[in-house]
Simulated assay, not measured.
Amino acid sequence: MRLTVLGGCGAWPTAEQACSGYLVEYEGFRLLIDPGYATMPRLLRHIQVDAVDAVWVSHGHPDHCADLNPLLRARGLSDVPPPALPVYAPHGALDAVLALDRPGMLAAAYDLHAFRPGDRLAIGPFTAETCLLPHFVPDAGLRLATPDAVLAYTGDTGPSPDIPRLAAGADLFVSEATYVDKVPDADEPYLLTARLAGEYAQQAGVQRLLLTHLWPGTDRAAALRTAAEVFPGAIDIAGPDLMITL
């Protein structure tokens, strides 16, 4: 299994980085996870739009799904459209982004598979287990497994005892870490810090931690140092074109 980071910026993209977006490949199958703002150009640095085999979305905030629209446009409006793209998302999460175009314009470009967080899914060669995690809107954490490796991903979440269970023993744990060591009080139930991500990684016994969804302008070195204070394993920060083989 290989993960390629398309972006890992929280809230909005910057000149250097797109928002959340990850390409996961295994045995020739390409799964696009969370196509947030500005991830489409990054995706095209690696593959063509018709090479995406499925899309999985954790929740409906646009920094995690906005670039599904240009992806579907590029496929559905091409001279020879590829088959409908399987898209997996929590019920209602994609209502807004799928309503950006006139009704029916892109209907043939996708096949929507709505699920409830907690459902277990089969996506190509992957077994996908999901769980509900606390955020401003319903967020589905993801445990993606093959016979060779396990990747766990929080989407956006606040503190939860379900996080170390989701990530237990994972080869790679991709965790939101919007802040370094303190979330503003009003947002504390809905977002994590780099320190909490490190604590959960340690509790889960993961092999490697990837911090993502850092607030624009966050000191990346400080986030790494803070996570490393509580997690002794390998730690990276999601950045454009970073590739990790599990």
Rank of each mutant, 00 (worst) to 15 (best):
D53P: 07
A84E: 05
A66M: 00
V57C: 06
H64T: 03
L106G: 12
L71M: 14
R73C: 11
I123W: 04
H61Y: 03
H113G: 01
H59K: 04
V87K: 06
A51Q: 15
L71N: 05
W56Y: 13
V87L: 10
D53E: 12
G92E: 09
A122F: 07
L98H: 09
H59E: 15
V55S: 03
A54L: 05
D67Y: 03
V55T: 04
V55N: 03
A93Y: 01
V80T: 15
H91F: 04
P82C: 11
H113E: 01
R73P: 00
N69F: 12
R75L: 13
P70F: 05
V80Y: 14
S58Q: 14
C65K: 00
A74E: 12
G92K: 08
H61K: 11
R120N: 12
V52A: 06
L98N: 07
L100Q: 14
L121H: 09
V87F: 08
A93M: 02
A99K: 08
Y110N: 01
V55K: 02
N69D: 15
L112W: 06
L94Q: 05
V80F: 14
P86F: 02
D111A: 14
Y88L: 06
Y110Q: 04
L98E: 08
L94D: 05
R75K: 13
S58G: 13
G118D: 00
A93N: 02
S78E: 12
H91V: 14
R116K: 13
L72W: 05
W56I: 15
H91S: 04
D53T: 09
H91N: 00
A99R: 13
L77A: 07
G118C: 00
P103C: 09
L94V: 08
A51W: 07
D111L: 07
D53R: 07
